[in-house]
Design a protein around this nucleic acid. Structure first.
Lengths: 210, 210, 210, 210
DNA sequence: TATGAATGAGAATTCATTCAT
DNA sequence: TATGAATGAATTCTCATTCAT
């Protein structure tokens, strides 16, 4: 669901270095989710990680690199979680439901990460420009895949006639709105939420009368 | 669709001052929409307006005040545009369609403004905190109104049983996704887009079999 | 009690111009006394005078000029008030008492002006440098005159032996502390205050046993 | 002689950091004493300390914090120096003399510091407001203590009848005038100055005929 | 004369990044 | 590797002063 991975960053890194990088990325995610991108200075992130600000620069050449690592980390994990499970769908309707339910459940377990990347993408900061472009490309790919799925469902006579693009945009918007809602209302029944969403779009795409 | 207006800022302002303020607000909106909130410094905004950076401070006591004026300006105009037209709906279904179509058409005419306020709200910046709170309150009100509309439709037997909250969140998300889509694809047929969106949610809410 | 007057500012000024200048000087004095030198911007002074900030610059070439006019105005009036009355003293003791009592009474009537010039002199601001120098020269002259008075009293056998300089510094300090005290405690009985001060220094200077 | 010390700023600081802070405080004191509060910008202070302006902000969150540190530093040292020595006075007369002499001697050794805090207190600047309040409270306390001492001397029949308040104000004024005088006349004989001042006020307070 | 909008020169402050240790 | 002190660039904000009206 995301674009090509990190170009050619085939840098050999020791185990300990990888661990530090992961720790810093984790601290960055939490800090951004909690206080927002603009206030997530190296000082804040370092404080949360229990290290010194200089160490972040030691491990990441530029702030941009750290932010991109956040992206790779979050979307990598998300892609792994979602891709396994959407394959074996018997119909487009089932595939759509599976996609929505899996995504919502993933959000429930990773709301902080989702919030962090959303904040990065939304921030107009210079350091986040590359990340934003990357997210935008990823979003466009996701939209294309969704459109393709809708077109297939229409070809198969499973879905009614509608604009695959508008439907894709709306499904994606509804999905992306989930983390904020789950954080705002932590008591939300996840399965019910997922089912509501899936049902809503099932009704929106199915042939009338089916 | 937005919270109470500016408390008691009944400052008398000359015509020329009002014009300048409007010009600066306009330049701020365009700058934020184009290069993002974080990069929209006074220097950038002033450059676009063809004035000196100091003049912005001359007209707006704090950056926060400028940002709030952007909010008031955009949402004020939006409220005026949307409120007139949603009243006279014969049914909840019609009301929902009217709301969606009006909103989409408004977005088509004011995509830049909508993008700017979205970016302000998403920015974690300190100067935007008040604006973000204000938008959040407005969004919560909008959700409540939508939920109420759905509940009424359900009471009236017009809508099927579903979670008003999830539906409201999804409708709002789809609406809020519109400006980005319209800017990304300027050739989009607005009326078609609005109709697609309205139909989609009509099908999602109506009683099965109707 | 003050140094040579304004060097060569023999500018002819119309009556109306003099009136404006006086009005601005008055507003400056009140503003500085009330909110302090640092916050007494042209905007503040103009607001109090009911005019526009630009008009101050129209009448005073530099801020420094306005500040100097404040000085001339306050010390001019003070000199006039004090000089008339200290002449006809029969003894140094009487002269000292007359000086102290006259000064205290003058302070009581002009506390605001005295506070303003004190604040100007104490402010390290660039614009106040000339005024500060001028006050310093005036203070030095005043000290010299006091010292001379003490020496004369000592020569005449009226005063005990003491350091005229230390006594002069202390008398001046006590006098200069008066405005602040009178403003802090507006209910102070002026005549009693003046008498206390005069008596205190009479006892401090008189020959023991007298 | 000063109000309660810094509330609860028990921040752990490394040795090197403490040293830098002290160096900056020192540079601030000297700069303020030399060129005045208003001109003592971070740039000036940093130039004197041989560091970059940003480093001051690195060590002190706000300008106000630096200014308060100047206050704590100066008055802390002063309180330590004065409190030890005024306790064991056999009479009020002796206590008064001890107070005056100790203060003058302290001023002789710390004229620059005394000048700096006086300038801070006199500056109307916003950043100095807290310091000014603090000094004002301290001054009021000092006056109260002096008044109390005078009242006690009067009750004991040691002092004549006079207004303790006026005497306290005048003594404090004379003391506060000392640093300026000592800086203006560096050759002043300190012990003689102290003795003159003490004698002056002894004569002013003692019962006539004693 | 008078206005008040406009400028431009500082000011403090924030922060990624560097570097000596 | 790690620290955290230090730098320097960028930003907002303040104001005397200027200038078109």
């Amino acid at each position: 669901m995301q674009p090509e991975n990190r170009s050619g960053d085939q840098v050999r890194r020791s185990f300990i270095e990888e661990a530090r990088r992961a720790q810093i990325v984790r601290a960055a995610i939490e800090t951004i989710a909690e206080i927002g991108y603009a206030k997530a200075s190296f000082a804040q992130i370092a404080r949360r990680a229990g290290i010194s600000p200089g160490l972040i620069s030691y491990h990441f050449a530029k702030r941009e690199e750290l932010i991109m690592e956040v992206m790779f980390s979050v979307y990598g994990s998300m892609d792994r979680a979602l891709s396994d499970r959407t394959e074996d769908a018997a119909s487009c309707t089932e595939a759509l439901r599976a996609l929505i339910e899996n995504f919502v459940r993933y959000c429930a377990d990773h709301a902080v990460e989702m919030l962090a990347v959303a904040r990065i993408a939304a921030s107009g900061a210079n350091d986040a420009a590359k990340a934003r472009d990357w997210v935008d490309r990823g979003r466009e790919e996701a939209l294309t895949e969704l459109e393709e799925m809708f077109r297939e469902g229409q070809r198969a006579g499973e879905f009614r006639e509608f604009s695959p693009r508008v439907m894709a945009v709306s499904v994606l918007a509804a999905l992306e709105a989930t983390p904020v809602e789950l954080i705002a209302r932590p008591d939300t029944d996840i399965d019910a939420y997922a089912d509501e969403l899936a049902t809503m779009f099932e009704l929106a795409v199915r042939r009338p009368g089916d």
